[in-house]
Design a binder for these strands. Structure first.
Length: 155
DNA sequence: GCCAACGTTGGC
DNA sequence: GCCAACGTTGGC
């Protein structure tokens, strides 16, 4: 089983919005970066776990956890001309872009902020903390995953 | 295949 | 709003 961290700007899609979805499940669509596409298509499996990270907001940080409830499949928003993520290079018979479904596991009692993540030496290799990191999905090690869960639990 | 220009991301 | 970092594009 794999662990991930998935970023979203809360103005676009927040953990609160995920909590309001039927069955607390949503498509993680709109990814238009090839490295992340490859993770969605080739590596993310049903049952994997992921942190939900709020970016580009007042307090960036991890706000909860999710599970991957459907492995990678074609991101159909790329086929819809009216969609802001439309990409004519992607066709239903040969999709260029992929998405997964995610289901909320739980919201943390408090956000584990970016500032707090930076304070812990154990987490210093997290990709999210690397300068200039722009990938919207990054792998997390089991050690990092459990350490952060503990931070959330010790609130 | 190189690389400059451009666009986007995201913290501050 | 600024700016550093980096991916993508397109001319050559």
């Amino acid at each position: 089983m794999n662990y991930w961290l998935m970023k979203s700007e809360p103005d676009a899609f927040s953990i609160e919005a995920l909590a309001r979805m039927p069955r607390k499940t949503a498509h993680w669509d709109g990814v238009r970066n090839f490295q992340v596409r490859n993770m969605l298509r080739d590596q993310m499996r049903k049952g994997d776990l992921a942190f939900f990270y709020h970016s580009s907001c007042a307090v960036p940080g991890i706000v909860g956890s999710m599970k991957v409830s459907r492995a990678g499949y074609a991101d159909f928003t790329a086929f819809v001309p009216e969609n802001p993520h439309f990409d004519p290079r992607s066709r239903p018979e040969k999709p260029l872009w992929y998405m997964v479904d995610v289901t909320l596991v739980r919201r943390f009692p408090r956000p584990i902020t970016l500032t707090e993540l930076r304070r812990h030496a154990v987490l210093k290799n997290m990709l999210i903390l690397r300068r200039g990191n722009r990938l919207s999905i990054t792998p997390v090690t089991a050690k990092q995953w459990h350490f952060i869960l503990k931070l959330a639990a010790d609130t």
